[in-house]
């Protein structure tokens, strides 16, 4: 079962990616091509995010005690704030295996936002194409270009 799950995930990523690639090549409608592009893009992002998954690990946000440990009863906590790293030695040990790998998350977070930028620009060009040719079908646009020359 474990081996099946491990491979099943990768298979689905590849299937999603291939669905997107097929749509980008074979679909004639420009909006459908962009839908395919979105699917392709999210499949790749999904692959990257899944690289960072660790069995039995939690989200990459440390609990408050791990960053600002509770000091002994007499002291109040805002004393720590004044001299920033004076208490660095007393921090409780944390194990890197308990937290998900944050690097793929950071890389993909920006990729998603850039994705909406490219999608918006592509949609703007699609609107411009529709204004000029009156259609979004690739075949009809090509026919109009050829008959125009």
């Amino acid at each position: 079962m474990e081996a099946f799950i491990a491979n099943f995930n990768y298979w689905i990523y590849i299937i999603l990616m291939m669905i997107g690639l097929f749509a980008m090549i074979a679909k004639k409608n420009l909006i459908k091509k962009l839908v395919g592009m979105s699917i392709f893009q999210t499949a790749i992002i999904l692959f990257y995010v899944s690289i960072g998954v660790k069995q039995g690990a939690t989200i990459p946000i440390l609990p408050e005690e791990a960053v600002h440990p509770k000091t002994t009863a007499g002291e109040t906590s805002h004393h720590n704030g004044e001299d920033g790293d004076a208490h660095a030695g007393e921090l409780p040990e944390i194990d890197a295996q308990d937290y998900t790998n944050p690097i793929p998350h950071v890389l993909m977070l920006t990729a998603i936002v850039v994705g909406v930028g490219t999608l918006g620009l592509a949609l703007a060009i699609a609107q411009r194409v529709h204004y000029h040719y009156g259609t979004l079908e690739e075949t009809e646009i090509l026919k109009q270009i050829q008959s125009g020359q």
Binding site: S38, V53, I112, A126
Partner: peptide, 25 residues
């Protein structure tokens, strides 16, 4: 997959703004 920041971004960008601009087009 415990990628909460990425999930949050996708919920606002991918499911929100992308859908709206696609419908606008």
């Amino acid at each position: 997959m415990s990628a909460v920041d990425v999930a949050f971004t996708e919920a606002t960008v991918g499911a929100g703004v992308s859908t709206v601009i696609m419908i606008a087009t």
